[in-house]
Design a protein around this nucleic acid. Structure first.
Length: 431
DNA sequence: GTTGAGCGTT
């Protein structure tokens, strides 16, 4: 019978031998130029493939033909499933879904989409490397038998992993928890935001307690004396010259101040204490005081800054493939000399090397060669002379010690004692 | 050889 024929022709997803196809995806429906992303061989689409192009994405939706409403795409454990088993992804244009209230950032807040974003903006939007914001994550509730490979396999669906580790006792038995680390902060947030089933057990991924103290270096500055006429865009555009701006926040009942969050906390740090003129208005910059609400405008430079440890990773353990440690170029004046860390000779600052040396404690590896930071620092020259300069970097933050901890893939395969583990083969790219 | 909230070497 006909029906049987039809049935025979139907090939289940699992066994389908389909050639790789592409799915059109864009950030919104009106996008002129969608990106085509390849599916897996069975027709599914890894969310990680999507986040590779759209950092921070947590799903897909599309407008279906019949009801003309938006439909979400089925997502299970990082795998997106085509809406139709026969027609698969069809020719729909899929729209990226971002987590609610998440840092998809300033870019969506522009009132007029028509205005093309500046190159810098595009760069920061497309950048897949939010750099140093990732932290190790603890995975609780693991089945005893799970191995690092299993963990790796499970979480690789979400994004690029940089470290996987399962805690064991002396005998090699799993303690039922482990640590992982992603290279993308967006992925990290997404993974944390949901529960996971790993080997038949519910597992939670959290920021470990040992890390909670370090609230991610503050890249936020306080901006005082702004006027009501100033817009977010205006402020953002101004500060982009010093580095990528992640967010600008202006309290709604106007209160004459705002917050600007940079991508690089060093840029923020270098701006502290300065006066800037934006559209003819003199504004002043201070620390954002992340903690309580201490109205501290004039402090003698004892504001406690969160530890700077994560900022510059001396061993670069989480960037295996030379992800950029260079900073945002292009905006700063001169200086592109070395991209190294650590002790730098006094940068050629106008006005005297002594002051420069004073500005930076070389042992902290504060990188004055970063054009953006340098630019910001140059701007603070006046404030320095005025004695208003506060040096958050001088705090002995002890950048070493703990930072390099247990992260990184096992340096030597010998680490895998107790048979069941296997770091075996495909580790080239990880080591 | 067991167990099921927690928090990572050396």
């Amino acid at each position: 019978m006909q029906e049987d024929n039809l049935k025979q022709e139907f090939i289940p997803l699992t066994t389908a031998k389909m050639s790789v196809s592409y799915v059109k995806i864009a950030e919104d429906e009106n996008e002129e130029e969608p990106i085509e992303i390849p599916t897996e061989e069975n027709g599914t689409l890894f969310l990680s493939s999507v986040t590779a192009q759209f950092p921070g994405a947590c799903g897909l939706k599309y407008r279906n033909d019949e009801t003309h409403t938006m439909r979400g795409v089925k997502l299970v454990e990082g795998v997106l499933y085509p809406p139709d088993q026969e027609e698969m992804w069809k020719n729909y244009l899929y729209v990226v879904v971002f987590p609610k209230g998440s840092k998809s950032g300033v870019r969506n807040d522009f009132p007029d989409n028509k205005r093309k974003m500046e190159d810098e903006d595009v760069q920061s939007t497309r950048s897949k490397r939010p750099a140093q914001k990732c932290s190790d994550l603890i995975v609780l509730g693991l089945p005893w038998k799970i191995t690092e490979d299993d963990l790796k396999e499970y979480f690789a669906k979400y994004g690029e992993l940089v470290m996987v580790l399962i805690k064991r006792d002396d005998t090699g038995k799993s303690r039922g928890y482990g640590f992982i680390r992603f290279s993308s902060y967006e992925v990290q947030e997404m993974v944390i935001s949901q529960r996971h089933i790993i080997g038949e057990r519910w597992c939670d991924v959290k920021i470990p307690h040992s890390k909670e103290q370090k609230p991610m270096v503050s890249a936020k500055i306080f901006l005082g004396r702004i006027t009501e006429k100033m817009t977010k865009q205006e402020i953002q555009e101004y500060f982009e010259q010093f580095g990528d701006v992640d967010d600008v926040y202006i309290p709604v009942p106007f209160r004459a101040f705002a917050f600007v969050t940079f991508r690089d906390s060093n840029v923020a740090a270098a701006l502290i204490g300065q006066d800037h003129v934006i559209s003819g208005v003199s504004v002043y910059i201070n620390t954002a005081d992340p903690k309580g609400s201490k109205e501290s405008a004039h402090r003698g430079g004892n504001d406690r800054w969160p530890n700077q440890q994560q900022g510059f990773n001396p061993r670069g353990m989480h960037d295996q493939r030379g992800q950029d440690q260079r900073f945002y170029g292009g905006s700063g004046p001169t200086q592109r000399g070395g991209n190294g860390y650590g002790p730098q000779p006094q940068p050629p600052m106008p006005g005297g090397p002594n002051a420069a040396a004073n500005y930076q404690n070389p042992s902290q590896g504060f990188n004055m060669m970063n054009p953006a930071v340098l630019a910001a620092a140059l701007g603070s020259w006046n404030s320095m002379l005025n004695g208003m300069f506060t040096d958050p970097m001088m705090q002995g933050a002890g950048a070493g010690a703990r930072g390099g901890g247990a992260a990184g893939w096992p340096a030597n395969p010998d680490q895998k004692r107790e048979g069941s583990q296997s770091w075996g083969n495909k580790e080239e790219k990880w080591s």
